[in-house]
């Protein structure tokens, strides 16, 4: 808390340096002294690996053959941007991001509304809704994998029953691109919708109840109240929720890794980077891919914050 408020306090006087009183100066110095060590540690553990990854991305470097390390400058990047595998992974990543975030937003909002309105078992309800989010992603990925597999799964049997036998009970969900991607996305949505709804619930709680009541008195329908009063008033919360989830979804790894390992063209950018770095120990190529992934995530954050005017600090107050 104290670190979050310190910069906010010093922000106002910094606009006009001449007006900075001695006390404010002293407070600012104290602020730096208090937050400085943490800041240095943060730079050391984030900036250093990023810089090292950028440096390594200019080399052809296999961990098992360090003597053959060779400076190729942008060679790795040119391979990445001319390889269809990269574009396939990019398309998959974008598809997963767009679909899961959109579905999660709608579902998450519905659940948030429910949690907001329901009074009686409020705490129990919130706990239940949060259960999927508290499960480790790898575990939930295995659960979904086993339920959809032809040998251990029950989903095919259920579908077969409710369609009166029309559904092939031996349907191989992971045998081709579309069904495999669907399972990956369903699992992702199931897992992270609670997170979305929690952020949206915080937004809902911020809305002044009087405004909604006024609209009600004026005769506004539910949908009119939703689109004219509720949504515009929680725009900041929605944008923050969408930003966080977009950044998360763009880096999807666990579900793909557990379910398909990238087979049947289901590779995503993270699994592709993992494959080069960890499987193939091609540190150079893996670093180049990681840098590309980093730049894309950075661009998404920038677009949201600058383009849509998402005020991260404001919504936290």
């Amino acid at each position: 808390m104290s670190t979050a408020t310190a910069p906010a306090e010093t922000k106002t006087p910094s606009k006009d340096k001449a007006l900075l009183s001695n006390r404010a100066k002293a407070e600012r110095r104290l602020g730096w002294k208090l937050a400085g060590p943490a800041f240095i540690v943060m730079v050391a553990v984030t900036a250093w690996p990023i810089l090292q990854a950028i440096w390594l991305s200019f080399f052809r470097y296999r961990l098992t053959d360090p003597d053959a390390r060779e400076f190729v400058f942008l060679g790795n990047y040119s391979v990445i941007f001319t390889d269809p595998v990269f574009y396939q992974a990019l398309r998959n990543t974008l598809l997963i991001t767009v679909v899961t975030v959109a579905v999660e937003l709608v579902l998450g909002f519905a659940i948030a509304m429910l949690m907001h309105r329901v009074v009686l078992p409020r705490r129990t309800l919130r706990t239940i809704v949060l259960i999927p989010y508290s499960i480790i992603t790898v575990v939930s990925a295995f659960a979904w994998l086993y339920s959809f597999r032809t040998d251990t799964g029950y989903v095919n049997h259920w579908l077969n029953t409710i369609t009166f036998g029309a559904w092939d009970s031996a349907f191989d969900w992971f045998g081709s691109w579309a069904p495999a991607m669907s399972v990956i996305m369903v699992s992702e949505i199931w897992k992270t919708t609670p997170f979305m709804s929690l952020l949206l619930l915080a937004g809902l709680a911020q809305i002044d109840g009087a405004m909604e009541e006024a609209a009600k008195v004026d005769g506004a329908t539910f949908w009119q109240r939703l689109f004219k009063v509720i949504l515009p008033n929680m725009k900041a919360a929605i944008m923050v929720a969408v930003l966080f989830r977009t950044l998360d979804a763009f880096r999807i790894f666990d579900n793909v890794f557990i379910m398909t390992r990238g087979a049947n063209d289901t590779e995503t950018l993270s699994t592709l980077a993992y494959k080069q770095t960890i499987d193939r120990v091609e540190i150079g190529m893996g670093s180049a891919l990681s840098v590309v992934l980093f730049l894309m995530v950075f661009a998404i954050a920038l677009i949201f914050i600058k383009g849509f005017n998402v005020d991260l600090a404001g919504s936290r107050k």
Partner: peptide
């Protein structure tokens, strides 16, 4: 003959 989920 490789079974319903031969590819996996």
């Amino acid at each position: 003959v490789g079974g319903p989920s031969m590819s996996t």
